[in-house]
Computed example of a mutant assay.
Amino acid sequence: MASPGGFKVFEWDLTVLNHTSYHSYSRGLFLLLIFFSLVIFIATLFLYAHWICSQRRPSTAAAENATPAPSPGLDPDFINSLPIVWHRSVVANSKGKNGFIEESECSICLGLFEDEEKLKVLPECNHAYHSECVDKWLSSQSSCPLCRASLSPTTP
Score class of each variant (00 low, 15 high):
Ser131Leu: 08
Lys118Arg: 10
Ala43Trp: 14
Gly5Trp: 13
Lys8His: 12
His87Gln: 10
Ser104Glu: 03
Phe10Arg: 11
Val39Glu: 01
Lys95Arg: 13
Ser54His: 14
Pro83Cys: 09
Tyr48Ser: 12
Ser37Gln: 05
Lys120Ile: 02
Ile52Asn: 15
Ile108Phe: 11
Cys106Asp: 05
Glu64Pro: 11
Glu105Phe: 07
Glu124Lys: 06
Trp51Phe: 10
Arg57Phe: 00
Val90Gly: 10
His127Asn: 06
Glu103Val: 05
Pro4His: 00
Phe113Thr: 04
Ala43Gln: 14
Ile101Asp: 07
Lys97Ser: 13
Arg88Met: 09
Glu11Cys: 03
Leu74Asp: 03
Pro68Ala: 10
Leu112Phe: 07
Asp135Arg: 14
Leu29Pro: 00
Phe41Cys: 01
Leu112Trp: 12
Leu47Asp: 07
Phe30Thr: 00
Val16Gln: 14
Ala69Glu: 14
Phe10Ala: 15
Pro153Val: 00
Ser104Lys: 11
Phe35His: 09
Gln141Val: 02
Thr154Pro: 02
Ser3Phe: 04
Phe36Cys: 05
Pro153His: 01
Ser3Pro: 01
Arg148His: 03
Val134Cys: 02
Arg27Trp: 00
Leu110Met: 13
Ala61Leu: 12
Asn18Gln: 08
Leu138Thr: 02
Leu82Lys: 04
Met1Lys: 06
Leu151Thr: 01
Ser152Tyr: 09
Ser89Asn: 08
Ala69Gln: 11
Phe36Thr: 06
Leu29Ile: 02
Ala69Leu: 08
Ala62Leu: 15
Val16Asp: 08
Thr15Ser: 12
Glu116Val: 06
Pro83Leu: 08
Val134Gly: 00
Ser59Thr: 09
Val9His: 05
Lys95Ser: 12
Tyr25Asn: 13
Ala63Val: 09
Leu119Tyr: 01
Tyr25Val: 06
Gly96Ala: 15
Asp77Gln: 15
Glu11Lys: 11
Leu112Pro: 12
Asn80His: 07
Ser71Val: 02
Arg148Val: 01
Glu105Cys: 08
Ala69His: 12
Ala128Arg: 06
His130Ala: 00
Pro4Phe: 03
Leu29Gly: 05
Leu82Gln: 06
Leu17Met: 08
Phe10Tyr: 11
Ser150Met: 02
Lys95His: 10
Ala66Asn: 06
Ser71Asp: 07
His23Asn: 03
Asp115Lys: 13
Ile79Trp: 01
Thr155Arg: 14
Ser142Asp: 08
Cys147His: 05
His23Val: 01
Ser152Ala: 10
Leu146Lys: 13
His127Thr: 04
Glu102Met: 14
Thr155Pro: 10
Ser54Leu: 14
Ser94Ala: 14
Ala2Ile: 05
Gly6Ile: 01
Leu33Arg: 08
Asn126Leu: 10
Ile34Val: 09
Thr67His: 15
Leu45Gly: 11
Asn18Glu: 12
Lys136Thr: 04
Leu110Asn: 05
Cys144Lys: 13
Leu110Trp: 12
Asn98Val: 03
Ser142Gly: 09
Leu146Val: 03
Lys136Val: 00
Leu38Cys: 07
Cys147Pro: 05
Asn80Gly: 04
Leu112Val: 07
Val121Ile: 03
Glu105Lys: 12
His130Pro: 04
Phe41Ser: 06
